[in-house]
Amino acid sequence: MADLGTYVVSILIIIGAFFALVASVGLIRLPDVYSRMHAASKAGTLGSGLMLIALAIYSDDLATITRALIGVVFFLLTAPIASHLLAKAAYAVGYRLSDLSVMDEMSKSDQN
């Protein structure tokens, strides 16, 4: 029964690291800052959160478990706010979407 927890921790760690890698590959491959933000904030947050949850499952200590879970909650609360602020600032200042973008719903000029 103790083995089961160890296997779960192994799987969570690998999945979390994989998601962190996917986020950074998205950071390299995607064309503009707005689409890169999808990769960095969603996949990156999921990766770190899964690894912190793995630490919480692995640990026997109540203090460590609460700290890891508080870290997850805190990270889930702050990451979307930071990304949203950054995207709004970049858009307000005029960084353009890539040419591959299909539409820009916030655009004021080319509304029909």
Binding site: V9, I13, G16, A17, A20, A23, S24, L27, V33, R36, M37, A40, S41, G44, T45, G47, S48, M51, L52, A54, L55, Y58, S59, T64, A68, G71, F75, A79, A82, S83, L86
Partner: peptide, 19 residues
Amino acid sequence: LGLDMLVGAAIGYIAVIGV
């Protein structure tokens, strides 16, 4: 955005080192 992602990856790294 890269720096933000770097912080996220560092948190994950710390968790793995903790295990």
